[in-house]
């Protein structure tokens, strides 16, 4: 097992390297990150010259890439200056915005797993029942719904019409406590938390529904397939109670392919988070990516693409490990 882990992590390095290069190359096609700095009042012309030199921006692509990668791994230059947020480095900008993205996308990832697996099993066990049809329809709905439009619809219904939830942002600017306005940062932690939860309910719903559909269907068909396997019949022939047959013998086998599927859906999760943040005006790294691309903030976009790639790769890696834990056939082969 340990060897397996070490081997798998070593295999990640070239993949990450390749991803880094490709995204660097692509993003640098967006424009010259220093040209726009001229408009930044915080940066003097000499500074621009100095920065250009530090980043080796006049050198060939490979050299540029090398210095950029060095700074990404060991950020002495803070991953470069942002043009979108004058006076801030990409690192500062991103690290301030990453927590909310991680918080709400991991919440919806967990919610989606918790919902889709039991519902998929239920759907399979009650194949062709009314409940199965309802779940199937719901699943297809989730798979077919364009995330951004679903978000807009929820905003229209629950924010604009019903006023149950806020339409944008992930926390309010200030609270009124006993008639006195208190800035969000100064408010008690539990108030902050509740307020954020309230703001993030709709975005989390959007992102969860987006993921649940496919997984539910997959779990259902996996369970149906496993249910007719020989070893399930063997388990019945042993006289095991039906519950043991289903939840010990069938389920454990049915859930294994789902692990891979969940691992593979990390790019989708990131894309979903990006759209959701954009629609709900949440200042996370997803919306930041969009804004960075639209305003040609090269260094920020580069760092973000790199971070997303790392997240995807880590997701796949975790899925591989869970897979190896769940399936004894993997460890030795």
């Amino acid at each position: 097992m340990r060897n397996y882990l070490i081997r798998r992590s070593l295999e990640l390095i070239p993949v990450l390297f390749a991803i880094a290069f490709v995204s660097f190359w692509l993003v640098s096609k967006m424009g010259d990150p220093f040209a726009v700095l001229v408009l930044n009042p915080h940066v003097r012309p000499e500074d621009i010259q100095r920065l250009r030199h530090i980043w080796h921006w006049d050198d060939p692509l490979v050299v540029r890439f090398w210095y950029w990668l060095k700074d990404f791994v060991w950020p002495r230059q803070g991953w470069g200056l942002s043009t979108l947020a004058p006076g801030q480095t990409a690192l500062q900008l991103i690290s301030r915005r990453i927590p909310v993205t991680i918080a709400f996308s991991s919440t919806s990832l967990i919610a989606a797993i918790i919902l889709s697996i039991p519902l998929g099993v239920y759907s399979a066990l009650r194949q062709y029942s009314v409940a199965d049809y309802i779940l199937t329809f719901f699943a297809f709905f989730g798979m077919s719904m364009p995330t951004f439009w679903f978000g807009i619809m929820l905003i229209y219904l629950f924010a604009v019409k019903l006023h149950w939830f806020p339409a944008a942002g992930y926390h309010r600017a200030f609270f009124i406590i006993k008639g006195v306005p208190v800035m969000f940062d100064k408010a008690p932690r539990w108030m902050q938390f509740l307020d954020e939860a309230w703001h993030l309910t709709l975005p989390i719903t959007v992102l969860t529904v987006f993921q649940v559909g496919g997984w539910l269907r997959y779990m259902r068909s996996s369970m149906l397939e496993v249910k007719s396997m020989d070893y399930v019949r063997t388990a019945r022939a042993k006289g095991l109670p039906e519950r043991t047959v289903i939840y010990k013998h069938a389920f454990r086998n049915a859930v294994i392919p789902i692990i891979t599927l969940i691992g593979l859906s990390f790019p989708g999760l990131i894309g979903g988070a990006m759209i959701t943040e954009t629609v709900f005006a949440i200042d996370g790294i997803g919306r930041l990516t969009y804004n960075a691309v639209m305003s040609q903030d090269v260094f920020v976009a580069m760092a973000l693409i790199m971070i997303f790639s790392i997240l995807v790769v880590i997701g796949n890696f975790l899925a591989d490990i869970f897979y190896a834990v769940a399936d004894p056939r993997i460890r030795y082969s």
Partner: peptide
């Protein structure tokens, strides 16, 4: 009943299946 049948399976009537490769659960 299914429950009575379950008690007979494996204890009074047992079965060996045709395919040794697939009749055992791979994860236990």
């Amino acid at each position: 009943s299914e429950e009575e049948m379950r008690k007979i399976r494996g204890s009074e009537i047992a079965m060996i299946f045709q395919e040794p490769m697939t009749a055992l659960n791979p994860v236990y």
